[in-house]
């Protein structure tokens, strides 16, 4: 079986408040997945349920084909680095790494040491005295060096600057190349990670909104700009996500594949066509003020 995670009808409610609504998906081995969505959309809740840190209200989850709950042989294969991961205050970074070597069977001590150097972490310093960014770096080191067949990073870079984030992406891709595994990156910094993702899941308001190849998402929408009247003529009969006008000019984000027919149609009208980034598209799709949302939600 090649499925790393299978989630069926997953729901989580607190009293009358439902935070995850009937979510279904399955993930294949050896890919980098993006779990995207706004803060509070339910991403962390889903990941906590996958790793049995939180109990679903209903639904079924299989990890490597088995129930992960209290299942040591499967738990060992999973490393989940969450933004709010707790480390005992009195531990030094060295203590955390030392323990991780017994928590994770694939732990690579040498690789961990090299990452510690990359992120300039003071191994002798106590967790209590680390800055937010250093704490995030500790999580990244643990996540990468654990070499767990399923590695999940949930907003792993709070407090990290652009340089440190870039080091993270570099190391992640390098190590993924030499030690392929399934990786889930959950983040709201979509622009930064979109090119690294092979497949994308978007969760909005507790519901799975998009589940498709990253390349396909890039082709789901484009923008047209030009004189208002011509833009309107172009968008007639097309699904439009947004339309902004300034003076006599307008710009609209239009759903659909940019094939040669639409391209030449826009050209004839003298409209400028531009790509819409994954981040822009997801922002528009998950913007709750957008009236089009219901129509796009498939």
């Amino acid at each position: 079986m090649n499925k790393v995670i299978e989630v069926n009808h997953l729901t989580k409610s607190y009293g009358h408040h439902t935070v995850v609504h009937d979510v279904n998906f399955s993930l294949e081995a050896g890919k980098i997945y993006g779990l995207l969505g706004r803060n509070g959309a339910g991403k962390t809740t889903v990941m906590k349920m996958i790793t049995a840190q939180l109990f679903p209200t209903s639904g079924e989850i299989k990890v490597f084909g088995e129930n992960l709950y209290e299942n040591r042989s499967v738990l060992n294969q999973v490393c989940f680095i969450k933004e709010s991961q707790k480390y005992p205050d009195i531990f030094r970074i060295a203590d955390v790494l030392d323990l991780c070597s017994s928590f994770f069977p694939n732990w690579d001590r040498e690789y961990a040491d090299s990452l510690i150097e990359d992120f300039r972490l003071p191994v002798k310093r106590r967790i209590k005295k680390l800055s937010r960014g250093m704490l995030s770096s500790v999580g990244i080191v643990v996540g990468l060096a654990s070499r767990a067949p399923l590695t999940i990073f949930d907003e792993p870079y709070l407090g990290l600057d652009a340089v440190a984030r870039s080091i993270f992406y570099d190391r992640l891709l390098e190590d993924y190349g030499t030690h392929p595994r399934t990786i889930i990156l959950s983040t709201h910094l979509i622009d930064e990670v979109s090119k690294m993702l092979e497949h994308v899941l978007v969760i909005d308001d507790g519901r799975l909104m998009i589940n498709e190849e990253a390349e396909a998402i890039r082709r789901r929408a484009f923008s047209v700009a030009g004189p208002s009247k011509k833009v309107d003529a172009f968008t007639v009969g097309r699904e439009t996500l947004s339309r902004e006008a300034i003076g006599g000019m307008a710009q609209a984000i239009v759903m659909g594949d940019l094939n040669s027919k639409t391209r030449s149609q826009a050209k004839e009208l003298g409209l400028e066509i531009n790509p819409v980034s994954m981040q822009q598209l997801i922002i528009h799709l998950t913007n709750h003020n957008s009236q089009r949302k219901a129509a796009i939600n498939q």
Partner: peptide
């Protein structure tokens, strides 16, 4: 208080 959430967060079984 300090070690249970840490351990569970890093894939330790509750029983262990």
């Amino acid at each position: 208080i300090q070690t249970f959430p840490f351990s569970l967060g890093l894939s330790v079984r509750r029983k262990d």
